[in-house]
Write a protein that binds this DNA or RNA. Structure first.
Length: 417
RNA sequence: GCGGCCUUGGUGUAGUGGUAACACAGCAGAUUGUGGUUCUGCUUUCGCGGGUUCAAUUCCCGCAGGCCGCCCCA
């Protein structure tokens, strides 16, 4: 094979596209049910946008970006996530204001230069939402409910919801200080990553899975204990709303997310049906990002769902919906040049009635054409050979019963209704 | 970025230091214009590059790709 897909990318073939289409249809339905409208932003943005918003010390920015220079030397990057582009687009087009709630959703490919693995690709697809304009915890709850509704709509079960609060610009510094305080003594025994994190981003130490570091991490103070009153209330309110909605969750105070812009609420939904890459969606609140990117101080919440992972679950769990693609209704089996011409003519007419029809383009034998028709799942085959041309009527065969009847060319349309 | 396993026709597999087998799919045929069963035949292959050897698909090294774990995340 001379050419193959670039590492970490995949072709989504006809065999699989029905699942994707179904997935997207369900998502769109749920999104609009909750009042969200779609935005489509460019696949690439200025590198600066991502560096600014996601944070220069995060893995995504530090080592996973598909960055390139265009012909004028501008530094651009294939979007690794969609929150920053949506904020950018919303600001640039005046879609948001402090006085109104704006609900947006997106579906599309994202790019991260990572080592491929099951459930992790370099080009993958996310669907997600971003809501702007309210700092009410009820909105956090709604967003989480919406997220769960997405999975419910697909019949996916066995999910876990993890919840945490990473505080705000007021109380987070206290927490980082607490963490540094806690890790100070043991940091020299911890892994290299943790040591750099200790300097630049102590929060991220909590994310470390290294066995040696675990002990120290487990004893680390939880962020929810150092939250300021406002953040603490916010979390309590959110939990109250979730309770009202009957949503079960687990407080996971090790849940820090890999992007710097989160404030207060962070959450992640995991599936038991997957391997190591078990997070199917994740998100949280980001009250400072809009302002940070040049807008007014407008609070926001959002999340993103990993679509490949959902597809994996659907495939495994056999929830797999029966192929929705409608088969061919009519196959025109033709013989001889005149038959082919007549078939071509009829094909056009039949299709104009909205009936899916197909014909032979290879000059195959009648036997072979019937075989093809059978494989296509055709309900009827209409046979046109020299005899039929002479009589101006073809043979309409019902595949399931093998019954045949003569039908005049001009009456074929009627017969199919 | 690190580690482990893997790479044979379109697909799934077998196998050997002397150029490869099976199943399914595909195509064709079984009195010449009729499908889904059966039978027969045909097409297509040892990821790439080096090395060892008289000879490698089989042994060794490198690369690429895949899978799994770490990391991270969706």
């Amino acid at each position: 094979m001379k050419y193959s897909v670039p590492r970490g990318t995949k072709d989504i073939l006809p065999q699989e596209t029905p699942i994707w289409q179904h997935l997207e249809a369900v998502f769109r339905r749920v999104f609009s049910l909750f009042g969200y409208q779609e935005v489509r932003t460019p696949i690439f943005e200025s590198t600066e946008l991502f560096a600014r918003s996601i944070g220069t010390t995060t893995d995504i920015v530090a080592k996973e970006m598909y960055e390139f220079k265009d012909r004028k030397g501008r530094s651009l990057t294939l979007r690794p996530e969609e929150t920053a582009p949506v904020v950018r687009a919303a600001l640039e087009n005046n879609l948001i204001s402090p006085d109104n709630v704006t609900k947006l959703y997106y579906i599309g490919p994202m790019f991260r230069y990572e080592r491929p693995q099951a459930g992790r690709q370099r080009q993958f697809h996310q669907a997600g939402v971003e809501v702007f304009g309210s700092n009410s915890p009820s909105l956090d709850a709604e967003v989480i409910l919406l997220n769960l509704e997405l999975f419910k709509g697909l019949g996916i079960r066995d999910l876990g919801l993890n919840l945490n609060s990473v505080g705000c610009s007021k109380c987070r510094p206290n927490y980082t200080k607490n963490l540094q305080e806690h890790f100070k003594e043991n940091i020299k025994n911890m892994c290299e990553d943790c040591r750099t994190r200790f300097e630049h981003n102590p929060l991220r130490i909590l994310d470390c899975k290294n066995a040696n570091c675990q002990q120290t991490i487990e004893a680390a103070p939880a962020s929810i204990n150092t939250l300021c009153d406002e953040c603490r209330d916010h979390l309590n309110e959110l939990m109250k709303f979730l309770k009202i909605a009957g949503v079960e969750y687990v407080i996971n105070n090790r849940l820090v997310r890999g992007l710097d812009y989160y404030t207060k609420t962070t959450f992640e939904i995991t599936s038991n049906a997957l391997g190591a890459q078990n997070a199917v969606s994740g998100g949280g609140r980001y009250d400072n990002l809009v302002e940070q990117l040049g807008g007014k101080a407008i609070p926001a919440v959002g999340f993103a769902v990993g679509m490949e992972r959902i597809v994996e679950i659907l495939k495994k769990s056999e929830i797999r919906n029966q192929k929705s693609e409608q088969g061919i209704i009519l196959f025109l089996a033709t013989m001889g040049e005149e038959g082919q011409v007549k078939g071509f003519e009829l094909l056009k007419e039949i299709r104009s009635l909205g009936i899916a029809a197909e014909m032979d383009y290879l000059g195959k034998s009648l036997k072979a054409q019937l075989k093809v028709a059978d494989r296509l799942g055709a309900k009827y085959v209409y046979i046109i050979g020299d005899d039929e041309i002479a009589k101006e009527s073809g043979i309409l065969k019902t595949m399931a019963t093998s019954e045949q009847q003569e039908v005049k060319f001009e009456l074929l349309k009627e017969a199919l209704k």
